[in-house]
Design a protein around this nucleic acid. Structure first.
Length: 465
RNA sequence: GGUGGGGUGGCAGAGUGGUUGAAUGUACCGGUCUUGAAAACCGGCAGACCCUUUCUAGGGUCUCGAGGGUUCGAAUCCCUCCCCCACCGCCA
């Protein structure tokens, strides 16, 4: 969430942020609610202060009188009662005042809070303006030696590619029918070498981050309380995307939600903490199963491993000092890690600077990495797909938006408490990344060459089929 | 699932209706002492929010698991919920 003080001082920054992100949050209404809230708060606090003052002044006397009253004779009672009533008159009136304020507050506060939570982090200055993914700007692209983006797959490799769907069927790597039988649409069963490849990719990515980049691997909950979802910024906006375990409906416990990314568990670790400044930057990675309802995506990418309800992902996060330059440096490093991995897997990819309209509520800067998938895209003259980029990674800078929500702080050199800056990036998401791996490494006969870096994780197997 | 015991400041641990945001210990920070350290002694040591401000402070409200209630006044009494611990049962 955003800093309310900053909103009051510089509302235009947030008005523009909302506009540039093509969102609809009424900043002026929030400002009005905020002002109303503070007015009520002030009245309430003044009444309370007076109440407390009187309590200190004559509280003891009141207690005394009450005590006396119990053992008082009938003759003494009226006098005592009178004094007591006199003493109680003022605080009783104040009590009513406080209650009045509470009632008003109960009106204002929920609206104020709800609206506040919706205000997005404004995009960084240098993020290109745009309406949606069509306005994203390509930063650079890379292809393995011998692969030229200007040519078709057939021209590059000398044969027409099979789609990953054909390849997994051919080698029995994935069983969609039985996945659907058990769990419905967008579910699948990973089989044999398919499962091994899936695991190999994940293990390789975790080991890379731990060994080559010094990130601490963590195992985190994938079913979490609502606070974690709100704290990490996925709720309220993304509520429809998350599976909801409604324990409350059973009359016990609290509701839980399945996380759609390891980011939730990783960032939740230090929620409500003041971490030692020396411990920054925190560099964590995790491999976790991710669950997504894909609400609103009906009919989109229905076939294959591209858009599924359950997958596994290695995620990396960095929590660093509240310093934009440092955050940018980490962003670059996290992206570089991914590029190293993709290159070692022999995949072709491009980096896209996402435009303002393609950003979510919580990020101020986002780079998407799309891998080339030869089996995707329009059909060519020969009836085979012409290939297309498909998003496999997303690297975000969140400023202090997420840590503010999570209440994750550190003490800076001057002793001031500050909300840390957060970043996150996919390391590898599988099985989606198996699509480019299978399609890029297929041979003319349909067999698949296993990228060398994965072989140690597959018992040395170099080829599938 | 059953029974019992608990949730108070970084930790430990008092406190059962009225200057208790909270004793005490300990940890931590600063100082004195010391060649240095330890010990001892002195001082400091929660956070959020609101208001004012000569931009450095000052004032106020809230917070003792969470929420609600009783009361002039709640850490303390009542209700609901959550969590933790121990033992038993069940179980991957």
């Amino acid at each position: 969430m955003i800093d309310l003080k900053e909103l009051r001082e510089n509302p235009d920054r947030f008005r523009n942020g909302v506009r540039d992100k093509c969102m609809d949050v009424d900043i002026d209404r929030l400002l009005a609610l905020d002002e109303a809230r503070r007015a009520v708060l002030m009245r309430q606090e003044n009444a309370r202060a007076e109440q407390n003052r009187i309590g200190k002044e004559s509280g003891a006397r009141m207690g005394q009188l009450k005590g006396k009253l119990k053992s008082a004779s009938d003759a003494e009672k009226p006098q005592l009662e009178r004094e007591l009533a006199e003493l109680e008159a003022k605080p009783t009136a104040l009590k009513a005042q406080v209650h009045e304020c509470e009632v008003e507050m109960a009106q204002i506060e929920p609206q104020w809070k709800a609206l506040w939570m919706q205000v997005p982090q404004p995009p960084a200055q240098d993020v290109p303006k745009g309406k949606g993914s069509d306005d994203n700007v390509e930063v650079r692209r890379w292809a393995p030696p011998g692969f030229d983006f200007a040519k078709t797959f057939a021209e590059n490799r000398g044969f027409t590619p099979r789609t990953h769907l054909e390849l997994v069927k051919m080698h029995g790597l994935v069983d969609f029918e039985r996945g659907v039988k058990m769990a419905g649409t967008r579910h699948y069963v990973m089989c044999g070498l398919g499962m091994r490849l899936h695991q190999a990719v994940l293990r390789y990515a975790v080991d890379f981050m731990a060994d080559q980049r010094g990130f601490s691997p963590m195992g985190v909950p994938v079913i979490v309380k609502e606070e974690c979802m709100i704290g990490t910024g996925f709720f309220p906006a993304g509520r429809e995307q998350a599976y909801h375990i409604e324990e409350s409906a059973r009359g016990s416990g609290h509701d839980l939600f399945l996380t759609g990314t390891g980011e939730v568990g990783l960032m939740g670790i230090h929620a409500d903490e003041i971490v030692p400044a020396e411990s920054l930057p925190l560099k964590y990675c995790t491999v976790s199963t991710c669950f997504r309802r894909e609400a609103g995506a009906a009919g989109k990418d229905t076939a294959g491993l591209y858009r599924i309800h359950q997958f596994d992902k290695v995620e990396q996060v960095v929590v660093c000092r509240a310093d934009e330059q440092e955050s940018r440096a980490w962003h670059a490093q996290m992206i570089q890690s991914v590029e190293t991995i993709l290159q070692s897997l022999g995949l072709a990819y491009r980096l896209l600077q996402c435009c303002t309209g393609d950003l979510g509520v919580k990020n101020e800067d986002m780079i998407d990495i799309e891998s080339w998938m030869p089996g995707r895209g329009e059909l060519g003259r020969d009836g085979a797909p012409t290939g297309a980029f498909g998003e496999t990674h997303s690297a975000s800078r969140l400023g202090d938006f997420q840590c503010r929500r999570l209440n994750l702080r550190y003490k800076d050199e001057t002793g001031k408490l500050r909300f840390a800056y957060a970043l996150n990036n996919t390391v590898i998401a599988s099985p989606r990344v198996l699509i480019p791996i299978l399609e890029m490494h297929q041979q003319a006969d349909g067999s698949i060459r296993v990228p060398e870096v994965l072989r140690p994780y597959m018992g040395g197997i170099a080829q599938i089929g």
